[in-house]
């Protein structure tokens, strides 16, 4: 076992090779569900068809990472990346039970190696890299493997020049990896900047819950940030706040809808609209090759006064006084009155 100075960065080619070796997405056993909000009962098939949203009341059930990829992607699926990385136990950590046992149990329960699944995927014909967290694996907590896979996803998307979609569902840093889990916050924040440098957008989806060190790192740094209805989004959870400050919190504290009002997210998006919404914004921010962003007027690419003149000529004439105020009722009812 070589400990000192071991370089864990591997070439993209080798990573791709590892990715293609992966199994087909695992089918989850058909599981019937009862809605905790309205008590309606559904078969597993109904749930899957409805993207695990209660048709009666709109309650959003948890979804596994691989089912999320199927929901977001095209038929034909996705190529999973780096799925063979697994957690180490640097502290030989034991709380009420050993960390090593917790990992084994989570692996058995979920059929996954870790709390994030990364893949290459097409969302509404836009090739993307996706990193989807899964709360069912140790509360979606971020240890060294989650940090490493997220960092690789950032670097991979930046290197390919394609958008990155991250879906967070996590209680925060993985306590059982101690200080090194905390450091994954730094790692992911820095890695995310590779996309800014590559001028490639990051779409952040905040699913229930997105809290602690995940919210205080990469999850609050999306270019476009959508939250699922009812998702708890907070650095400190309600229980910690109530115990520390004796504040009495409103029932919707930290919930997606309230965080929209607080200015913390761009929109609350129903899961059944999510793929279409991501696709729509990606076609604006990062149109795939061969799809022009703007069919500009002739000479658009030319500089200087000539271009300005041509653009001005090509504009439709506006009703009313050009230099005056834009009046309500003059074809721009919702517009600002300047």
């Amino acid at each position: 076992m070589s400990r000192v100075g071991r370089n864990i960065t591997v070439s993209i080619d080798r990573l791709r090779h590892l990715g293609h070796r992966q199994d087909r997405p695992r089918r989850i056993a058909s599981d019937a569900s009862t809605c905790p909000k309205c008590d309606s009962h559904y078969s597993g098939d109904e749930m899957r068809r409805n993207l695990r949203v209660c048709p009666a009341c709109g309650y959003h059930f948890p979804v596994t990472a691989r089912e999320r990829l199927e929901q977001l992607g095209e038929p034909g699926g996705y190529v999973e990346l780096w799925s063979d990385l697994r957690a180490a136990d640097p502290l030989q950590f034991t709380d009420l039970k050993p960390y090593a046992d917790r990992i084994r149990e989570a692996e058995t329960k979920t059929g996954m190696n870790e709390a994030v699944v990364c893949a290459e995927i097409e969302v509404r014909r836009v090739p993307c890299v996706a990193a989807i967290m899964d709360f069912s694996f140790m509360g979606g907590s971020m240890g060294a493997v989650v940090g490493e896979k997220l960092a690789r996803a950032c670097e991979h998307a930046a290197q390919k020049g394609i958008p990155l979609i991250i879906l967070s569902s996590s209680g925060g840093a993985r306590m059982q990896e101690g200080t090194l889990a905390l450091m994954q916050m730094a790692k992911t924040v820095i890695a995310l900047d590779a996309l800014a440098e590559a001028q490639v957008p990051v779409i952040m989806i905040l699913a229930h819950p997105t809290t602690g060190g995940v919210w205080a790192s990469f999850a609050s740094l999306g270019d476009v940030t959508y939250a699922e209805p009812g998702a708890l989004i907070a650095f400190s959870g309600p229980r910690v706040i109530e115990e520390t400050t004796r504040e009495v919190l409103p029932a919707d504290f930290g919930r997606a809808e309230r965080q929209l009002a607080n200015g913390q997210v761009d929109a609350v998006v129903d899961r059944r609209e999510l793929a279409a919404r991501i696709g729509r914004v990606l076609h604006i921010l990062a149109p795939p090759d061969g799809e022009a962003l703007v069919a500009g007027p002739p000479g658009w690419a030319q500089g200087g006064a000539e271009r300005v003149g041509r653009v001005a000529q090509s504009l439709p004439s506006l009703p009313g006084k050009i230099m005056g105020r834009i009046r309500p009722g003059s074809g721009n009812d919702d517009g600002p009155v300047a």
Binding site: R3, G143, V145, K187
Partner: peptide
Amino acid sequence: FRRLGPLRDPEGGVAMASGRD
């Protein structure tokens, strides 16, 4: 920061990326 955090690499066993003895 990039190298912090040990993990099990399928080929390399436990990799303590930056540990010091």
